[in-house]
Every structure is written in structure tokens, then in C-alpha cells.
């Protein structure tokens, strides 16, 4: 390949690298802003307007405050449970669903697909969903209320099914000749060939669980059960001073330090960022296995 590189190709490569460096700067900036703010002095930060390239003053007090907060740690444990258990079940269910919907000889395929896509658009709304989950399944105040209602994301199901269509039928047919049933074909033959998609699906579900807070806010009534994002969200709300409105009954709220909300974001996000490169390596490996097979 290297021999063939033309002048225009080299110009393109350099431009591309420069563009990517720009991308890095532009997308890294918000994170840098948060990082700088988290090390700032709350008072100075309040006065500051505009872009932040370096902490205003320097103070670790925000971190001291955040790390004292017991709920950050219980939040971590709850979130890890939901991410691990939830993602495992998600991937299992989504694989099953995607496999079923990719069977060209399956009579119910079209009906099922439409019925499933239909649910992306029509729902009964918040109240009946709550009644089903809380009153009938008794999942209220349980972490399972954050896992079971979202077992299959239709969007991810469709993405995975699209990948299944890309698997050459010859592979499947030879497995069938060897006497493999559908379970063996799905888990031993098809999934390994599309590991890159599986990796993406895992990532989507895991990050989805990591970022989710709304169901937790609806179903959990004990703060010990809160996932990390809900703890973070409460802190963000706590740190904003209410503007004055004409409510009949207003309550003066004392704001917590500006820098604390930024420190909380760092404490809740940093672990993902540290873990991600390792995961990515694993994903790349998975991708290569897929490529060799394909």
C-alpha cells in the first residue's frame, strides 16, 4: 500500500490528520471545561463568564465535599449492578429477537416486525406503564424496575437484525448440515461472525443503562437504591438557584457551591473514560475475529 501513495493522497492524509486534531480539540473542550471548573474556587467561578481554559483559583474542596457523599458510592454499586445484569439480559433478548426477525422462512416474521416497530411509536403513556410495573409486577422501589421494562430496545433490535442479514447464508447452511439447531446457529455460528455489531450493541445498552435516570426517578422511593445518574441529577438541581417566580408559595433555596456540580460530573464520568480504552481493545479483537471468519 505504502508504495502506491500519491501526492494527492498524502495531502488528503495530512488534511485528515489536522481535521482530526481539530475534532479532538473541539470535542475535548467541554470535558476540559468541566475539569477546570471542578478544581476552581466556587466564588471565583461564580464571577467568571466565557470559556474556561484553566481553573479559577485552585481548590480541592469540591472533591472533598463530593467524596464525603455516601450516596455517590451506593450509586456506583447500584449502577454497576444495573449495567452488568441489565446489559447481559438485553444482549440475550435482543439476539433472540433479532435472530427470529431475520429468519426468511419464518412465517410470522413480517407480522412480528411490524408489531414490534409499532411499539416504537405507540404506547399507553406513563400512568398505565407505571401501574403495570408497580401494581401488577410489584417492581416498585426495586432495581429490576430499571432493567426489565427496557429488556429490548427496538432500535437496537433492528440494528442487530440488519447485521444478521449481512451474514452469508452458506455459513448457516453448512452448520445445519452438521445437525446444528437454531440455538447453536445463533450463539455459535452467527453471533461470533458479527462480533463488531455485538460489541456496539453491548456498548449502546451499557451506556444507556449508565446514563439512564428517568425510570429510577419514577420507581425508586428510597435514596439508597438510586443509581449514580440520579444522584448526579439531584446534585445538579441542588446547585441551581431558583429564579424568582410568582408561585404562591416560594421557598428560598440556598445554592451549593458551583464547583461541586462539576466535581460530581468528573467523579461520575471519569471511571467510564478510564475503562473505555480497555474495552475498546477488546472490541477491536472481537472485530478481528469477525473479520477472519467472514
Amino acid at each position: 500500500m505504502a508504495i502506491k501513495r500519491s501526492v494527492s493522497g498524502r495531502i488528503f492524509d495530512s488534511a485528515n490528520v489536522i481535521f482530526m486534531l481539530l475534532m479532538i480539540f473541539v470535542t475535548l473542550y467541554p470535558f476540559w471545561h468541566v475539569l477546570a471548573a471542578s478544581f476552581s474556587d466556587s466564588g471565583l467561578l461564580l464571577r467568571h463568564t466565557g470559556a474556561l481554559f484553566w481553573p479559577e483559583g485552585f481548590s480541592l474542596s469540591a472533591y472533598e465535599h463530593v467524596l464525603q457523599n455516601q450516596r455517590i458510592f451506593t450509586g456506583y454499586l447500584n449502577t454497576i449492578f444495573v449495567v452488568v445484569a441489565g446489559t447481559a439480559l438485553n444482549v440475550l433478548m435482543t439476539s433472540l429477537g433479532a435472530y427470529v426477525l431475520s429468519r426468511k422462512k419464518f412465517a410470522m416474521r413480517r407480522v412480528l416486525t411490524i408489531a414490534i416497530v409499532f411499539t416504537m411509536y405507540f404506547s399507553g403513556g406513563m400512568i398505565p406503564r407505571y401501574i403495570v410495573i408497580n401494581n401488577y409486577l410489584h417492581l416498585g422501589n426495586s432495581l429490576w424496575a430499571l432493567i426489565l421494562p427496557g429488556l429490548v430496545s427496538t432500535w437496537n433490535l433492528i440494528v442487530m437484525r440488519t447485521a444478521f442479514f449481512g451474514v452469508p447464508e452458506s455459513i448457516e447452511e453448512s452448520a445445519r448440515l452438521d445437525g446444528a439447531n437454531d440455538f447453536v446457529i445463533l450463539f455459535r455460528v452467527i453471533l461470533p461472525t458479527i462480533m463488531s455489531t455485538v460489541a456496539v450493541i453491548i456498548l449502546f445498552y451499557a451506556v444507556g443503562h449508565w446514563n439512564a435516570w428517568f425510570d429510577a426517578a419514577l420507581f425508586l422511593r428510597k435514596k439508597e437504591k438510586y443509581p449514580l445518574q440520579l444522584v448526579l441529577r439531584e446534585i445538579l438541581i441542588l446547585s441551581s438557584t431558583e429564579s424568582m417566580t410568582n408561585d404562591v408559595d416560594f421557598v428560598d433555596k440556598e445554592a451549593i457551591g458551583e464547583s461541586i456540580k462539576y466535581a460530581t460530573i468528573i467523579v461520575t464520568t471519569l471511571p467510564v473514560i478510564c475503562i473505555y480504552p480497555f474495552l475498546q481493545k477488546y472490541f477491536v479483537k472481537g472485530v478481528m475475529i469477525g473479520a477472519v471468519k467472514g
Binding site: 412480528l112 414490534i116 406503564r129 410495573i133 429488556l151
Partner: peptide, 16 residues
Amino acid sequence: VVIYYIIFCYAPMYGA
């Protein structure tokens, strides 16, 4: 998968 969709998506639809 069908059971999931029935319980969590179709059952609450009466609320619409």
C-alpha cells in the same frame, strides 16, 4: 421476546 413486548408494551396500551 414476544412475552416482553406483550407485558411491557402492549398491556399498558389500554391507557391510550
